[in-house]
Design a protein around this nucleic acid. Structure first.
Lengths: 144, 144
DNA sequence: GCTTACGTTGACGTAAGCGTAAACCCGACC
DNA sequence: GGTCGGGTTTACGCTTACGTCAACGTAAGC
């Protein structure tokens, strides 16, 4: 964005009353996280992000940026976007009433159980990868 | 399967020359692992399983059963079926030549890195879930 | 006022991972 | 010999998570 370069060259920031160091355009956000614009817009379509707007242009503040990072972490963990939505929305849920809170605690337990299962799966896979690697090294030594 | 029940009721095993305790039909295998027949056949379509046949009927031995379990573990970890294929095939690769072996070791390192990233993601998610849970308990206490 | 860079909204395309009939075979039982 | 309860194949359908145009707005610089 040449406009942001302009801002950097203009410490008085006459071009934009808001502090641009706390705001990201969709391109910068995408590039920073190694995803496409389409992906970010898609996350907005399904309610995972809700950036501010200047006219029609999307502007992402620190909070939206964090949400994106939470989404991407969820993806690395193999969760679907709806699942990620429930998880991410846990983080900024209002106190609410007792029933809600108990339901939320239930959900947390569900997720925790899933994550612990994943941890076990990872450990098992790791040790098996080690075994395969060891066999590889043996075979290599035998060939030398 | 009434045929297997028959086997159990017939210790002399006259109905089947092979030892059925080491062989699974597709239904038993599916039920045991909580997946559908369609899923198991699909895994065969994409080359993840290759059961023996008695006529047209699929028969799974211990080795195929293990492979299915590896596939399902890969799925729980969020890997795609093609990714799972490369991982699973590592386990019963023939020694091969040096170049192959080095490539395999490379792949193992790639997977290991992914798994370690997942481990970090899990840890972070866990601590955040803990924080949310703690806040929930506070709010509940405040309501009481 | 034209270009260029960046943004926007549809809307259709696609690959993966199965679901879901439809139509058939085959051995067992009554 | 019909009719179960299993099995089989073929094939089209569906959902998710975006990719990929197409057509357009808008602000900046020459």
């Amino acid at each position: 964005m040449e406009q942001r370069d302009g801002d950097l060259a203009d410490p008085t920031n006459l071009t934009d009353p808001t502090d641009p160091s706390d705001l990201w355009t969709i391109s910068r956000l995408a590039e920073e996280h190694g995803v496409t614009l389409r992906t970010i817009r898609h996350y907005e379509d399904v309610g995972l992000l809700s950036p501010a707007r200047r006219g029609s242009q999307r502007l992402y503040d620190a909070r939206q940026r964090i949400r994106l990072q939470l989404v991407l972490r969820g993806k690395r963990l193999g969760f679907s976007l709806p699942e990620i939505a429930t998880i991410v929305n846990m983080y900024d849920e209002q106190p609410g009433e007792a029933g809600q809170l108990r339901y939320l605690l239930d959900q947390i337990e569900v997720r925790r159980a899933e994550l612990e299962q994943m941890r076990r799966d990872i450990d098992e896979t790791m040790t098996e990868l080690d075994r395969v690697a060891a066999r590889c090294h043996e075979d290599l030594a035998r060939l030398a």
